[in-house]
Amino acid sequence: MAKKKSAWLKASAVLTYLFLYLPLFIVVLYSFNDSKLNAEWVGFTLDWYTKLFHNQKMLTAAGHSLIIGVVASFFATVFGTLAGIALHKYKLRLLPFLVLTPIAIPELLMGVSLVIFFVIVNQLIGILELGLVTIILSHIAFCIGFVAIVVRARMQGMDESLVEAARDLGASPFQAFRLVTLPVIMPGIIAGALMAFTLSIDDFVITFFTAGAGASTLPLEIYSMIKIAVTPEVNAVSSLLMLLTLALIVIASKVSPSALRGGN
């Protein structure tokens, strides 16, 4: 299909890619800049990274983000996998609605309803004070849908006759699931888990609402740095976060090459 393409089409595509990448490139570049201002290049330094690793608040926040990401993505993967399989196998009414709506509505709405819910529950029975636990519970809720979609896509691509063959050969439904279905959809589950982890690590809006004063995460810390005083330390932490995400994508593409394409 490749035919001669007009020059302006190519030029506009190049410009759009520049528009997409130049900002991120500048962030990384200035993280090595020996100046407090993100204005012009002065000289190379690693000071901002050193500063970052001595910033106790930032380290605590990073630790929180990691814990939240691991725990939330684990449970979101379990629930999301079950939901993904159920959505594929059965005609259900309520579950698709509950799984897909959190993805479709603006995050803000979920943040609002969850903070009201947590505070009311806390007032009534004294549990679920805003903090790490409420962040984790919220992250699980919004990640389930993403995992479910990826797993369902994988189920749709699966050859059903494999399960039938296992059943004919005497496997119990559970054995057929564990020994046939699960290995086949495993790349989807792993891709979903990585996706949930990235979404959780990256989430700002829902975390912003459900964190309360009790806990800070990396995005919340970045937010307050941006709002109060912008220093290239933000660039340094941003660059590291980008590196982490990039690493996750590389892993995802190694584990499940189709996941990246199916995951949108």
Binding site: I26, F204, Y223, V234, L241, M242, T245
Partner: peptide
Amino acid sequence: WSNFLIRIYAW
């Protein structure tokens, strides 16, 4: 895939 806040911060 990079953090939402970072992309805004870049601008």
